[in-house]
């Protein structure tokens, strides 16, 4: 056991060295870092304000009242921002591809994806997670929830699974970048569109959106369906409310697609030349 621990620590050491250097680099420009932290809060607040403006004129949207949608927003935003903190920077891959600097990663004796994921950590997202967690806490307080150990376990599993789903969508998008290079906005549509979609009541979607964010990229499973299951709401006609329990399955599906996309992309890549 001690040997195993030692082996793990040794394998983790190079990643840790890179990550701690990135943390030091980001925090060394204090003014700029503080501004980044503040901006992340402001973005979160503006998105909440957009929801609030809509709910000023209506009582419920797609079967969710303001309290329920706050819970959806809290889960979605916490999960997405956490995924963004740890793996969001894989969307800089096109820059490496264009500059040919990706080849440097091939020289190191570590898996490419593991290196890319640990090449950066976007600390400025910390405050954005704070906004999400605050919305989540308020959402849990204002909704009528029959608390039990099962509910707590459910919430923990949902948060983990949703974070993994979003992280998977980042990795899948990065895999497709090997083919697109210049059209990275196409995958942004799914990744960042997914973030926006996750905060919506999925019951308002038309067929194209259900196909895209209900199943292909299972964004509906990150926050909307779990909240419907948790609060015992009627939910959408195209999905029974118990599907909210399948959030982990959505994460597994997303990662299967992500790893397939990544492998295909890496095999397609032929080097930067030179």
């Amino acid at each position: 056991m001690a040997d195993l621990d030692h082996g793990l620590a040794a394998r983790w050491r190079p990643y840790r060295a890179v990550l701690s250097s990135r943390v030091r680099a980001q925090t060394s420009y204090r003014g700029s870092f503080a501004l980044d932290l503040a901006s992340s809060v402001l973005i979160g607040l503006v998105e909440l304000a957009e929801i609030w403006v809509l709910y000023r004129s209506v009582d419920a949207l797609g079967g969710l009242d303001l309290a329920a949608v706050l819970l959806v927003f809290g889960i979605a935003d916490t999960a997405f921002s956490t995924a963004d903190l740890f793996v969001g920077h894989v969307d800089t891959l096109p820059r490496y591809l264009r500059a040919g600097t990706l080849d440097v990663f091939y020289l190191r004796p570590q898996p490419l994806l593991a290196q890319l994921v640990t090449s950066e950590i976007s600390l400025r997202r910390v405050t954005r997670i704070g906004v999400g967690l605050t919305a989540l806490a308020v959402g849990l307080a204002v909704n009528d929830i029959a608390w039990s150990p099962l509910v707590v376990a459910f919430l923990v599993v949902v948060l983990l699974a949703s974070t993994l789903t979003f992280a998977g969508s980042f990795v899948a998008a990065a895999g497709v970048q090997f083919f697109l290079v210049d059209a990275s906005e196409m995958t942004n549509a799914v990744v960042y569109g997914g973030r926006y979609a996750a905060t919506q009541p999925a019951s308002v979607w038309g067929k194209p959106l259900v196909a895209l964010f209900g199943f292909a990229v299972p964004i509906a499973f990150t926050a909307y369906l779990p909240v419907v299951a948790l609060l015992g709401l009627p939910g959408a006609e195209w999905l029974p409310s118990w599907l909210g329990w399948l959030a982990p399955l959505a994460a597994v599906w997303t990662w299967a697609v992500a790893l397939l996309a990544w492998r295909t992309g890496v095999r397609h890549y032929q080097g930067g030349g030179g």
């Binding site: 210049d182 549509a189 919506q200």
Partner: peptide, 23 residues
């Protein structure tokens, strides 16, 4: 390529905006 990527992004967000605003 960039223009096409931007178009796809605008369309996806368009569908999301339309559905929530019409609701």
């Amino acid at each position: 390529g960039a223009a096409l990527g931007g178009l796809v992004a605008n369309v996806v967000f368009g569908f999301l905006k339309v559905s929530v605003l019409t609701a």
